[in-house]
Design a protein around this nucleic acid. Structure first.
Lengths: 205, 205
DNA sequence: TTACTGACTATTTAAACAAAATTATCAAAA
DNA sequence: TTTTGATAATTTTGTTTAAATAGTCAGTAA
C-alpha cells in the first residue's frame, strides 16, 4: 500500500511523533511547522517533503490515533462474557482515549462547525467500527437468548451511542458545551455507566 | 408584581408580539429596533421606554414563551395514566415547542458559547420544572408498584433528559451540530420515542 | 536518484483605523 | 404619563498595513 522506503517510513513516524507531542501540548493553532521541525533538528522544508501541508500532518496523526483506538476496541470486543461487559469496555476505552488525548482535540473545539472532510471520514470510520462490533455483540446475545430479539441491532446501537454522547453535552448544568471540559470527564463516565445499565435492562426480557 | 398600569401592560404585550414575529422570522441579529417600532407605527424611542435594551426585549419574549411551555407541560403532566404516557407527552410538547419557534432560537445558534446569564436562568427554570414534574411521575409509579424503587428519581430523570438531548446532537451522521437542522426534527422525535421506550423498560421489574 | 536545506514567496492573522449601521439617550412635545 | 425627533454612543463592517507563519523551489549532498 505505502509506496515509500523503510527509511522514509521511519522518518515519517518520527515526524508524526514529534507533531503529536506538539499538538497534544499546545493544540493545532499554537504549534508551528517550524517548531515541529526544530524539535527534530530538521528544516521545515523537509516536513513538506513528507506531508503536503499542516492540516494533512495533523490528520495523519489523527488517523494513527484512530487506528490505535480501533485496534484496542477490536481486541477487547472479540472476547466478551456478556453484553454488559462488552459495552462497559467500549465506554471505558473511549473514555481513556479522550482523557489521554484531550488537548489534541483542541482542533475540534476551534474549528467547531467546519471540520475538514477528511476528519469526518476518520470519525465516521471509528463510528462504523463501533457500530459493527457492538451490533455483533447484540446479535450474539440474541442468539444466546440472553436478550429480546431485535429486528435492527444497528438502530439500537446508534441510539445508544447518541444517548451516551448526550451525557457529555448536558444542555443545562454546566452551560451548553460542544466538547466537555476536562474536569467533567469522570462524572460523565460514571453517568454513562448508569445509563448503560438501564438501557441494557431495557433490552432484556 | 408588575408595577405598570393596565394600559402599559397592554402596550408592552403589543411590543412583545411584534418583536416575537420579527425574531421568529428574521432571528435576533437581523431584526432592528427600528423595524419593530415601525411595525407598530411607533418611534424606536418608545421601545426603550418599555424595555431597557434590545436583549432584554428578546429575553422578555423568551420568558413569555417559556411560561407558555411550562403551563402546557404542567397541564398535561398533572393527569397521566402511566409513566410512558407522561414522558411521551413531555417529548411531544417539547418537540412542538421547538418546531413552532425554531427560527426564534436563531439567537442561540449565533451566540452559541456565551449566552447571557438571564437566558440560562430561563433554560434552568424550564429544566427544573421538567425535573420536578417527571420526578413526581416516577415517584407516583413507584408507589403504584409499576416500576422498581428508585433511590434518586432526580438522577434518573436528569440522565434521561441528557440521553434524549443526545439524540439531537448525533455526533456523526449529519455533521456535529449544536442545534439540530429543522428537517431532522421529526426523525429526532421518532428516535426519542424509541429511546424512551427502552429506557422505561429498563426501569421496570 | 533520494533526502534534504536555505532563501524565497504566498497566505493568514492581528492591529489600527475609518465609515456605516444600529443601539441607546434625552430634552421637549402631546 | 406617554411619545417623539434629534443626537450621542456603540457595534459592526470594511480597509489597510505589518508581522507571523505556511508553503515553494532551485540547488546541494549523500
Amino acid at each position: 500500500m505505502s509506496s515509500g522506503s523503510d527509511q522514509q517510513d521511519i522518518k515519517r513516524e518520527k515526524i508524526l511523533d514529534a507533531a503529536y507531542q506538539r499538538f497534544l501540548h499546545y493544540g493545532y493553532s499554537k504549534t508551528t511547522m517550524n517548531e515541529i521541525a526544530s524539535d527534530l533538528s530538521l528544516s521545515k522544508a523537509l516536513l513538506y517533503y513528507y506531508f503536503p501541508d499542516k492540516s494533512q500532518l495533523y490528520i495523519a496523526v489523527m488517523r494513527k490515533l484512530a487506528g490505535e483506538y480501533i485496534d484496542n476496541l477490536q481486541n477487547k470486543l472479540n472476547k466478551f462474557e456478556n453484553l454488559k461487559e462488552a459495552y462497559v469496555s467500549q465506554i471505558d476505552i473511549k473514555h481513556d482515549f479522550i482523557v489521554k488525548n484531550y488537548n489534541f482535540f483542541d482542533f475540534f473545539r476551534v474549528n467547531e462547525q467546519n471540520l475538514p472532510e477528511t476528519i469526518w471520514e476518520i470519525i465516521t470510520e471509528i463510528h462504523q467500527t463501533e457500530m459493527v462490533l457492538l451490533s455483533a455483540a447484540i446479535k450474539t446475545e440474541v442468539e444466546k437468548g440472553n436478550i429480546k430479539p431485535v429486528n435492527d441491532p444497528g438502530e439500537i446501537v446508534d441510539l445508544l451511542l447518541d444517548a451516551l454522547h448526550g451525557v457529555s453535552v448536558s444542555a443545562v448544568s454546566h452551560k451548553k458545551v460542544m466538547f466537555p471540559k476536562k474536569e467533567h470527564l469522570d462524572e460523565i463516565h460514571t453517568k454513562r455507566l448508569l445509563l448503560l445499565d438501564i438501557f441494557i435492562k431495557g433490552l432484556m426480557y
